[in-house]
Design a protein around this nucleic acid. Structure first.
Lengths: 196, 196
DNA sequence: GTCTATATGGCGATAGAC
DNA sequence: GTCTATCGCCATATAGAC
């Protein structure tokens, strides 16, 4: 890993944690044990550094779901695998996830399009195709959105829900979340289930 | 509306838009046509101002759902009303919603508890009770979370989903969203539906 | 490619007049 | 309760030596 990549990977963590305006070049320089001027040798300005960090965080994320789509499972099995994979991606790389959350909240239309097409589009298309197989009578875009929404909400709001009535530690176990969501979805999509 | 409230309501808008570190006291002062020093007459420091703005944004939000719970509707009707009310609250006060999003992302454990208990707990409890009536065999906490998650995800990610395949303008119509979600949920909760 | 030193300006916050 | 003026610090960014 060269110097530039070293800076970028630290920047991902710190931008994810503090946001664009919350992280100063001084802080980043200290974190990577360099002077501010040295960072400016690699990037023209803070904005370019931020954008490069976001793209860098993307790289490789597309391949994680390949096991879901390439397997010759039934659509119902694929749904279970997708839910589980999405939970894993979000859980295993929390910095990537937080950076995405911030981008979705703060990006302008141009950056949003980059985000949609560069990172998520392929997976969303494949998920829509699965949605069509599972529930041909429903709007595939809305169904795909619902699947992602259910998973993301659980994970995004975990620290909040801990303080809600009825919360149990097991609600944070990934298997419990995954099973609840798939059950809800399979019923919601009108698919008869076989008891395991 | 007195001076303090004038400052707070402007602060809500600007904090929601730019975040804590993204909004400077100078900017806020300009926005409310005052000097920075005058603002410091009403608030001890920026942090206290932010916290007061967050509490101020909360006020009155609890009462919006009363029509849902006080009506003598059936549980199924109540679910529809709740989904619609949640969509309305989020849509009609986007600044409140963005401020909440930022709080959920950035607050520490103490602030998170305040948020959960001070703002959302009562509504969440009532929603859990409804969940128990709708689907006694499922975990009410998880069901309530799912209902909120479906609604919130659609609205939080609207600007992103516009760039996804299969998107249609009608996907942003509140009625379309509300109907899709309730349909999905009623199936998901195993409740037989009557065709309208 | 890295550093020290520095320019320039915005930051949170305060003093003290009116 | 509002203002002007100011403090001390940190921000982004650059110049130029090694």
């Amino acid at each position: 890993m060269n110097t530039k990549e070293k800076i970028l990977s630290k920047a991902i963590v710190l931008f994810a944690d503090k946001g664009y305006s919350g992280l100063s070049m001084r802080m980043l320089a200290t974190a990577v044990n360099m002077s501010v001027a040295s960072i400016y040798h690699h990037f023209p300005d803070k904005d370019a550094l931020y954008l490069e960090a976001v793209s860098y965080a993307f790289s490789g994320k597309e391949l994680i779901f390949s096991q879901v789509w390439e397997s010759d499972s039934t659509p119902v099995e694929k749904l279970g695998k997708f839910v589980r994979s999405l939970i894993d991606v979000i859980t295993l790389d929390p910095d990537f996830h937080r950076l995405m959350q911030r981008e979705i909240m703060e990006a302008d239309a141009e950056r949003m399009q980059l985000l949609a097409q560069g990172v998520f589009q392929k997976q969303f298309s494949l998920l829509m195709q699965l949605a069509r197989e599972l529930a041909p009578e429903l709007d595939a875009h809305l169904v795909a959105t619902s699947i992602i929404g259910l998973v993301k909400h659980y994970l995004d709001n975990k620290p909040l829900h801990r303080h809600f009535p009825g919360w149990k530690p097991e609600h944070e176990q990934l298997e419990v979340i995954a099973e609840h969501i798939t059950t809800l979805l399979l019923n919601g999509l009108n698919i008869p289930q076989v008891r395991q």
